[in-house]
Amino acid sequence: MRTSDRVIKAFLQLSTVISVLITVLIVLSVFSETMRFFSHVSPFNFFFGLEWSPQTAIRADQAGGSGSFGAVPIFVGTVMIAAIAMAVATPLGLLAAIYLSVYATPRFRNAAKPVLEILAGIPTVVYGYFAVVAFSPLLRAGGDYLGIEVASESALAAGVVMGIMITPFIMSLSEDVISAVPKSLIYGSFAMGATPYETVRNVIIPAAFPGIIGAVLLGISRGIGETMIVVMAAGLSSNLTLNPLEAVTTATVQIVTLLVGDHEFDSPKTLAAFALGFALFIMTFLLNLAAQIIVKRYRQYNV
């Protein structure tokens, strides 16, 4: 090989090393800040404490003045909003995928798919704007009409809008999975006189089940990592509740509120954001890994 070719190959190798290094860097940087946080606050208090009020940390030298960093309300809020989102996105996305692959005429499919692709391409900040300007007030008005009090930053509003955001994602993933179901199985079912619904229920869904679970896991991972919608539409202060009509906060909201603005880098308040980020990273990483393994194994069985 000529020298120039050697240089090119070395550059390619170097780039690969760098892109692997990025993951290592993410883990290391966030992990080291997390460890520094845990030198201020014990992990037990962080993972099991019920009270979250980092803003009370006034002075670092002050005894007991480090605020309280019990992250349970935040995890509950995060999971609740993600659960609401998935309760919207899973049926919508799955039904849409089934309708498009089983019932829809090619003409309808060509008209409907761009709609869902546009939904997938809209920046999340726009969803956040819509949740704040239109959806929350609508929900509040509906609540007033029924005599139910709905908080202006209710978990329900943020969750539903997030669900709509995740819907096209679930749809395209489950459509891939459904189209991978062997045609012989589907035709066999039709030949036995089953209606399309019976085929979907007894053949397509069981055959595509692992893939659908994978899609749902990826959806959950997106839901708990989603930031802009919740920063704009969910609450800022922690609130340990399971009522979707009240305001709750999420890990991503807390990271943003703790880190936006001026801050010194040694206070437990700032480091708490990294601890939350690390927890978030681990959660989403495990979910993605599980989804990938499930999908990969499923593809091997079903060729």
Partner: peptide, 23 residues
């Protein structure tokens, strides 16, 4: 490396903000 890159694509974007801030 492949699994790693696929996972990197699915890491919540806010984590990259933390990385940028600290590094």
């Amino acid at each position: 490396i492949e699994i790693n890159i696929n996972n990197l694509a699915a890491v919540p974007s806010i984590i990259y903000g933390l990385l940028g801030l600290s590094i």
